[in-house]
Design a protein around this nucleic acid. Structure first.
Lengths: 213, 213, 213, 213
DNA sequence: CATGAATGAGTATTCATTCAT
DNA sequence: CATGAATGAATACTCATTCAT
């Protein structure tokens, strides 16, 4: 039932390769990585259905058939990318997260860690946004998503209970914050110019004022 | 070169039919509308490349060939929807917009008009979000988008000049506001439950506090 | 079984309208003629399968449906043209043909009458050549063709018996003569310049020398 | 822009496989040949527009998609056949052509070499005739045709200058000869019976008498 | 293991034909 | 009678997937 395939020892999905996005030719045995990277790029550029498997193979520098040694199907491939990147995102945001800190600091940490991920893995971030809730995502991929969502919901509810965030449906507040983050990220993609640290801090300050009680 | 087609008298693209989204069968002569409605729904559900033309025809209750009497190609069809809905959106937001009002009131009006559009035309709103900057949009469609963007940029810049909005790149502030709006809208789609008026007002208040100086 | 249709009084297929090829708009009631003319032109330009029925309607200046008032199907239409023109050709060649004349004169008459037809109805002549033996011609159309063939075969056989033509398979001699005629006709179409009377006479003299005993 | 495709090492278009027309199943790696052969047959039987690509695939014994590995489009396929056969024809006629011989011998050689080609490649010969000057032939295909035409025109003009051929427009004489050749060839196709050597000689003698001064 | 040629089901689009007006 | 909008079967072409090498 696992959606990826055969090559015997595949290291933990959770330990994420330092991405090396941009490598165009598969060197040595990291064809799997090359395929994931190429597919990520293309899915962002053209969408899932707009991307042909041989195109992925071309960009990855492997034969078309090779993709099927590593992934059962095109669908399994998107799902693998989705989970890989969602877990990578979770790692960046949650590893060593100062849960004990006050809400203001929690928020700043959250925002800045997301900014770090989005800056270093812009394509991956856009990919996660675009493929959110698509019908070709399988149950396991959705589960990864939901786990993060539940975690954040808990944090928000507690902060509300302590009177540090505005009251209101937690999903609404989270949607607002995450949406603003995506909007800011996109705005810099569209101008094709990375945000600098000051911009991210400004944005963070804005959104904190939006949700603070 | 115009992307819509033959049937002689087609009423101004700008005068938008109250959509009546949801009607599944083509009544009388409004096959064009039926096709636009069906395609809008399906493009939202499955994306552009994920939707087959015969599926659109089926849902519109017309023959597959009929679509090509009204639209030159599948691509012309998305572009027609995009422009129709973008202009509809612009109409709802800008018709009788109180330009003279103070910034606080301008902002409230903007948000609430967008909320009105997103509530009454949820699919259309999501469609516009998804198809933003896709490569199958033609120049005219992009132009419609850019006109709105320039308009808003002007408003933001002036309000900043009057010291009523935080300083910073206008594109960043706009991305933040629009992103937050999209995030809020999506959050209610995902729970499959429309936001009530109080929720929209809360969200509006939040975002105002985000951008006010 | 007749392949043309309904309009009540259709005048004898054999009495051929002086073609008036080139008329683009159907005047009064001669829509049938307009359709035949338009179809003839297009079948020559693009072939049978390469020509769309609505194109024929357009060029004929009638609605697409109208064609089906006069002809049961596209196939019936080609067959009607084929028979009309084949009979027209037969009329021009055989009406008042001096059967009693000597072989030299018979040959001259034959050639010059064919030249007359090919000059005055170039499209029709090319049409007859192209559609020779195509699978969409029905039995009656083939019968018209075969009747002419038998007639000529008889003439050739008799002339051979009188020692005025070279001996050899009659079909070979006829193929040679008819082929040469077509070749000459085509050569002037390709240069897009009609042959003058002297050229036709020269060609006639050549081919006579080819077949005379 | 070249009209044939991908498979890397394709041997010179000019070195023509001894066609082996009639083979219905693709053996080994010669799928390209199988496709060319099947398409040639079908284009002769039904014309270009009358032939469906899957029909070609069926007769060639390959999958429909396979055709597109070898040819960019149906149009590229006809053009490939046209050029292949036109060059094959040119090879058969011109290889070791005794240019120094007297006009009578030149003519005999020309005719008999054409007869050889038409007998051994009847379908190919008919194909070349039918597709002459069709609008789906591209510039390169037309160029191949024109080169041969220019060559012959030169020969005719010189022979006329030496007083060995009748005077008159070279195109007319060439049209006459080529037309007669085609007519003879067709006449035997229609009876479905190959001409024997004596028949070809008879025809040659006839046409020589047609054009000799 | 890796490949890419081969496949056929699936896609966008066209077109002969019908039929309500 | 005449029309042309509507249709769906058919067409050219693409692409995920397989498998012989």
């Amino acid at each position: 039932m696992a959606s990826e395939a055969h090559p015997k020892a595949r290291p933990s999905q959770t330990r994420l390769s330092s991405p090396a996005i941009g490598t165009k030719r598969a060197a040595g045995g990291d064809k799997r990585e090359a395929i994931l990277d190429a597919a990520l790029e293309l899915f962002v550029e053209r969408g899932f259905f707009g991307t042909a498997v041989p195109e992925i193979a071309d960009r990855a520098g492997v034969g078309a058939g090779t993709i099927y040694r590593y992934f059962e199907s095109k669908e399994a491939l998107v799902n693998a990318i989705y989970r890989q990147q969602k877990l990578h995102f979770a790692n960046v945001v949650l590893d060593g997260f100062p849960r004990a800190a006050n809400t203001r600091e929690l928020f700043r940490q959250l925002w800045m860690r997301m900014a770090k991920f989005a800056t270093e893995n812009t394509n991956a971030f856009i990919f996660l946004e675009l493929h959110h809730h698509q019908r070709y995502l399988d149950d396991e991929s959705r589960a990864v998503e939901n786990r993060m969502l539940d975690l954040f919901t808990g944090v928000v509810t507690q902060a509300q209970a302590r009177g540090e965030l505005k009251l209101g449906p937690p999903r609404l507040l989270m949607g607002l914050v995450m949406g603003a983050f995506v909007g800011v990220t996109r705005s810099c993609v569209e101008i094709d110019q990375a945000l600098d640290s000051a911009d991210w801090k400004l944005a963070e300050q804005c959104i904190w004022e939006a949700v603070r009680s």
